[in-house]
Amino acid sequence: MTTSPHPTTSPSPAQPGPPAPAADWSPACVVFDCDGILMDTEANWARVQRAVAQRHGLAYTDAMERAMMGWSAADVATAIADAAGADRALVHADVLRTEEQTLTAQIVPLPGALETVREFAERLPVAVASNSTRTILGVKLEQAGFAPHLATWVSSEDVARGKPAPDIYAEAVRRLGFAPAEALAVEDSVVGATSAVAAGLVVVAVPSVPDGDPVPAHHRVVSLTDPAFRSLVARWLG
């Protein structure tokens, strides 16, 4: 059996600790990640990766799952195809087909997610920036009830480069009509937070793997119901 993709295929994460915003800073708009922040779809995404990897003779390990957390379908397909010596386009199609087949109506918001999005949306424009494909992202946001509260959402297919490049967050903020420094990003992964920091947003990290690699962010909280996060929201929204 072929070994799993080497970690060097992973996009390089940025180091944590971006410069802090001004003490009186507050957001003019908010951009949320989707998977792992708004809804618990990371487990399904891992199952998709495992199924595709195994079909191509790769051993899917916990280390591989962690390394590819937050990756786009295109990046996952490239890593699997290169490790297996397979055609990238065929593996990419396999990844997309498998994800579509496993996506069900049982998509539910994570605790506090829908309430938080609604709360911000009542006062500020809100977007979602995700490495999902356009179709799958739309299905997830509609099924989980977030779509009516969003001004826009940006997928990996809407920009030249997915996360960890800054393109997705830069495009989301552009659509909302603000400068990156005026925007708040809420992220759970190193890949996603690296993207938001590189785009110039202020980042709140809610790590989905608490004992994983440090997530670069200006603020770190345990969950969207964490009193520390609720205190930040109260301060920002007045």
Rank of each mutant, 00 (worst) to 15 (best):
N131L: 03
L103S: 14
V95T: 13
Q106W: 03
P21H: 14
D158Q: 12
P13C: 03
E99I: 04
R123D: 04
F32Y: 10
E99F: 14
V159S: 10
G192R: 08
A53G: 12
P16W: 09
P148H: 06
T61Y: 02
M39C: 10
D167N: 11
L90Q: 15
T194I: 04
E100H: 14
F120R: 09
R88K: 14
V52F: 08
A81R: 02
A86R: 11
V222A: 13
A172H: 07
A59I: 02
L114N: 05
Q143N: 10
F120K: 06
V48M: 02
I37L: 14
A79W: 00
R50I: 05
R118L: 12
L237R: 05
E182W: 02
I37S: 03
T9Y: 00
V221W: 08
V117L: 12
V209Q: 07
V173T: 09
L110H: 02
A193I: 01
A79D: 00
L201V: 05
S156G: 14
A79E: 00
G85K: 06
V173P: 06
T104L: 03
P11V: 00
A170M: 11
A160D: 12
R97W: 02
G112R: 03
T225C: 06
E122L: 09
P27G: 07
D94S: 10
V139W: 07
A105S: 14
P5A: 01
D82K: 06
C34G: 09
E142V: 03
A172V: 11
S223A: 12
P109S: 09
T104D: 13
D158P: 04
S12G: 00
A179P: 00
G70L: 07
I80C: 06
R230S: 05
A170H: 12
V117H: 08
A179H: 13
T61W: 01
H56Y: 15
S195C: 04
L201G: 07
H218P: 11
T135W: 02
E142H: 09
V30I: 08
D94T: 11
T78N: 04
I37T: 11
I80M: 13
A20V: 05
R161T: 09
S189A: 08
L124P: 01
L103Q: 14
S132P: 13
G112C: 10
E100A: 15
E142N: 06
E142A: 14
S195F: 03
P214Y: 02
S10D: 00
L224H: 02
V204L: 04
S195A: 13
S231R: 12
L150D: 02
E115D: 15
Y60I: 00
L124T: 06
A74W: 06
P111N: 06
S130C: 07
L141M: 07
A147Y: 03
T3D: 12
L110K: 07
H149Y: 15
L124A: 09
E122A: 15
A28V: 08
P210H: 05
A199E: 09
